[in-house]
């Protein structure tokens, strides 16, 4: 099998206050796969993402992007990763285009033309007339689209999403998942955390359930088959809480 794009090896994080946020978590995400992390608030989903982004250093273990360790060589790792946060916040005083251009350049891609920016914004579903409007008046769905546009333009093999569809209306949520599957089909590896069991079931290649820092269940779409994911989720959470 090819080299995994995301690779968590015995990822462990203990905070200074002693809380064990991640406890020897290991998983892989390969190109063309979507890995959905499920779990209650505080289960360790965001901590995992923060380690992949080098916002946190693991206490033990390693997170790798295409084989590059995120905490020993953060810049090389970050060159290959794009990030869409739960609530994409861009500079409110800038237009969508200006934000896009800025963040794309930060990502190290400064060869794009204006047309390409427009094309990508249109691809993520942002109406042409909104391109040159300031972000101040944008709805959450529109901001989320901008965030994804930034990720697309960065053209990174790895994309991390932190609860990207929470708070979106059904239409926006649907469009968003469509885009994700399209990206997956282009060969991107996608790591996302979500509370949305229905959507995870629908698009994920692999589903992992985290509870109190431990990966308590991990099944591929094939392994899941026709099982009721919601039932499984509740079982695993309850089983370990007890």
């Amino acid at each position: 099998m090819s080299q995994p794009t995301f690779e968590a090896v015995n990822l462990t994080k203990r905070y200074e206050d002693g809380v064990l946020a991640l406890d020897h978590v290991s998983f892989e995400v390969h190109p063309g796969q979507i890995y959905a992390m499920l779990g209650a608030n505080g289960a360790g989903k965001t901590t995992t993402i923060n380690i992949f982004l080098n916002f946190l250093e693991p206490t033990e273990g390693e997170a790798r992007i295409n084989g590059v360790c995120t905490h020993t060589d953060p810049l090389a790792a970050k060159a290959q990763i794009a990030y869409v946060s739960e609530n994409v916040m861009l500079y409110p005083a800038f237009t969508a285009m200006q934000n896009l251009e800025y963040f794309t350049r930060l990502g190290g891609r400064d060869h794009h033309t204006k047309d390409e920016y427009h094309r990508v914004l249109e691809r993520v579903g942002l109406q042409r007339e909104a391109h040159d409007k300031r972000l101040r008046g944008f709805s959450k769905g529109m901001r989320q689209k901008c965030g994804l546009a930034i990720a697309i333009l960065k053209d990174a093999p790895a994309i991390v999403l932190d609860e990207p569809t929470s708070g979106l209306d059904p239409q926006a949520g649907y469009e968003f998942t469509q885009l994700l599957t399209a990206l997956r089909d282009e060969g991107k590896a996608i790591l996302m955390s979500t509370h949305d069991i229905f959507r995870a079931r629908e698009i994920a290649s692999t589903v992992g359930i985290l509870n109190r820092g431990r990966l308590v269940m991990q099944r591929s779409a094939a392994e899941l088959g026709g099982a009721d994911l919601e039932q499984l989720y509740l079982e695993h959470i309850a089983g370990h809480a007890a």
Partner: peptide, 14 residues
């Protein structure tokens, strides 16, 4: 606080 810092630093930016 606004979240742009995280977005910026998700890039290969020393």
């Amino acid at each position: 606080e606004s979240g742009t810092l995280q977005l910026s630093l998700a890039n290969p930016l020393p």
